[in-house]
């Protein structure tokens, strides 16, 4: 059966809680809601010398949303706002227009490519990125 949307890697990322949790004293935090399903993502960041040094997140959402937040938790620290906005733009383009996955460690986002075929689920993957961008805008 063709449900490769929920392949092993996505389920593994969704179950991974290693980067989960709120920060006590973030530089900025942002919460976004998906009005379609009521899902909610909060991202806290501490920004030092323009780069994210620590990131925390809390997700009330589906497997795709949690998997996406896990990758952000794993790979966003050490990057600045400008480069992360490029990543957010690239994920959006990958889902909506079949663009390539972003470079480097963000290649892992390739795991979400099957979601492209499910328009109503794009926002599940993009919600944590939107929270990330909102938090970075606030920290700016």
């Amino acid at each position: 059966m063709d449900t490769d949307l929920y392949h092993a890697r996505i389920l593994e990322l969704a179950r991974d809680t290693s980067t989960e949790g709120r920060l006590d004293a973030p530089t900025a935090s942002a919460t976004v809601n998906n009005p379609l399903c009521g899902d909610r993502v909060t991202i806290d960041v501490i920004v030092e010398n323009a780069d994210i040094s620590v990131l925390g997140h809390k997700v009330r959402g589906c497997a795709l949303c949690r998997a996406s937040a896990t990758l952000i938790g794993a790979h966003a620290p050490g990057h600045d706002a400008a480069s992360l906005k490029v990543v957010a733009g690239a994920v959006t383009a990958m889902l909506k227009h079949g663009g390539p996955a972003p470079d480097g460690p963000w290649q892992a986002l390739e795991a979400f490519r099957p979601v492209a075929d499910h328009k109503s689920r794009h926002d599940c993957v993009l919600l944590p990125f939107q929270a990330l961008v909102d938090a970075l805008d606030q920290a700016d």
Binding site: M1, Y6, R121
Partner: peptide, 14 residues
Amino acid sequence: TIHPHDVCTILDHH
């Protein structure tokens, strides 16, 4: 442990 939209997407494939 399964979000309603994950249930619905898998069921859609059925």
